[in-house]
Write a protein that binds this DNA or RNA. Sequence first.
DNA 1: ATGAAAGCGCTAACAG
DNA 2: CTGTTAGCGCTTTCAT
Lengths: 339, 339
Amino acid sequence: MPRPLPSLADIARHAGVAISTVSRVLRGQGTVAPATARRITAAARRLRYRPNLLVQGMQTGRTRTIGVMVPVDDPFHADMVCGIHDALVAEDFCPLVLWSGPARPPHRTVTELEQLHRMIDRRVDGIILRPVIDDADDVYFHEAIERDLPVIAVDRVLTNAQVDFVGCDDADGGRLAAEHFLALGHRHLGHVAGALFTSTGRQRHDAFLAAAAAAGAACQVAEDPTFSDGEQQACQLLAAAPRITAMFCANDLLAAGAYRAAARLGRRIPADLSIIGFGDLPLAALMAPPLTTVQQHAYQIGSLAARRMLVRCAGDRSAPQRLLVPVTFAPRASTARVP
Amino acid sequence: MPRPLPSLADIARHAGVAISTVSRVLRGQGTVAPATARRITAAARRLRYRPNLLVQGMQTGRTRTIGVMVPVDDPFHADMVCGIHDALVAEDFCPLVLWSGPARPPHRTVTELEQLHRMIDRRVDGIILRPVIDDADDVYFHEAIERDLPVIAVDRVLTNAQVDFVGCDDADGGRLAAEHFLALGHRHLGHVAGALFTSTGRQRHDAFLAAAAAAGAACQVAEDPTFSDGEQQACQLLAAAPRITAMFCANDLLAAGAYRAAARLGRRIPADLSIIGFGDLPLAALMAPPLTTVQQHAYQIGSLAARRMLVRCAGDRSAPQRLLVPVTFAPRASTARVP
DNA sequence: ATGAAAGCGCTAACAG
DNA sequence: CTGTTAGCGCTTTCAT
């Protein structure tokens, strides 16, 4: 039972003034005689006063806390959360990070709605979320947006609602991958796609194919909506189109699977098969050979999203924005000239 | 400006009863006529009422929120935070995750005290923290413990304060590493230590040396308090004691540095030099050769710490406990019989 | 079984 | 310049 912290009343008593005077001094508002102010600040310090943001939040309706529905169990999202954290803290806000989905034993699965309620019950000033695969969009619409809570989607767009979006330029990434292959002389391309019903997967796919088509190069596609087995997908792709010499994978994990597939089929990387990933996870540079990939800059995405949220919290009511953090291309050793 | 959510007063008005009756029904306390209760729950649902935990927190002094001072920027700590999150959420609590230290551009460094205040100002019910290198212990003592806030240290012990500790069995890890080497016939061991002024580094070091000494094996140590350059440390170690055939690194990153050192010196792993890491980061299994290492189970540590915190929050005032999650040994391909 | 009222810590008018 | 007062949404007596 944490003992109650000192209150304004305690300070007032010690300084021999009214509570409202203390409030004025501590908030730097209104006009107070310097001598009185000094007595009050001294008493506050002596009592080690800390403001009660619960009360302040109740009064003003603003808690300086932002709900963040992003898991931290993979490096990409963790990095994004870091960016959000740093940007919020810089403005004296806090992230309240919660996420849904299955938990490891001994814990149980938690629903998105449940977590959303936990945030709302604590009266967060807004919600930054990374949409999950299924159609949980309605939940956000119903629970948050209708309640006039600012919502910002990161990484993937929220399809059923008009809200700000911050992500990376997935299309540009797909284009860069294609152009890299084309510049190396490849004419028979393959793409191991992620889930094509997500905005990220769809755009990487479309842009890669568009750039290939524009150059008159052939391109075969395999889709792996679960992201679970890049090896399997890459094998099928190479079996269906043996002439493929270059493969663009929708993320680095799929690329790792493709490495295994190549090894299984006796194709050397990059001599026989060039591979490009997406994301630049920490493991990408450590793979053998180091993976050529598109860098996403999750930290910047998070930071930008948080700053956008702060603008919304400050009262901005303008139309939803679509903010793209540029991707960069990291050429490493998994790509080479066409054999 | 989020519009104010419906309040008990709104429900009371809609149901034609007094506020206190609504309160009773929603909290399942007291006795209310079934018919009245039904009218009230119906009105609450219709208005989409959500309780205001700020007010509840102000009243009761409990916010069902736990401050978590653990960074999310490396996989080990992120995993720990996952465990904390899942265990807290399972009991309808929330983690408030904040951490100190330098932030990437464009953000600035944040102090531990600042973050601690952010938590206290929001009236968290307790604080789980991963002590940093410097002696910030006093801060916690002064700001939290003296305020009667339960504090739990994870991973590293908080030296200057008597609080619960949850970590892994670092000593056992050091011992396991030594025994593995000894079983493979190694007699000339090396240890690239982390910071020996941390409980983790110290215990891994002490236990490894003790086990080596007990078996009469020689052991040379290099310390790298900054964890910044395993390659450099390993090189020096091998230069100073060329007969070393087995090296225990205080963490996996140092082990990665040792790999580079071995390559530089023309020592093959594991043929000429066996290496053991600590932590089992995701990269460990991906290294070439896959790294033999001690697994720490950060998720379990986090989960256990959170559950301990919930017990403290429930009023447990017993003496500080020291809880150790067992480590496990993961033999992979970086260790072999002595040449 | 239900209502009225006090109070939690603080802000924001409004008086002096 | 400073004090008084009325809430904010809810819990908790105390009446009825």
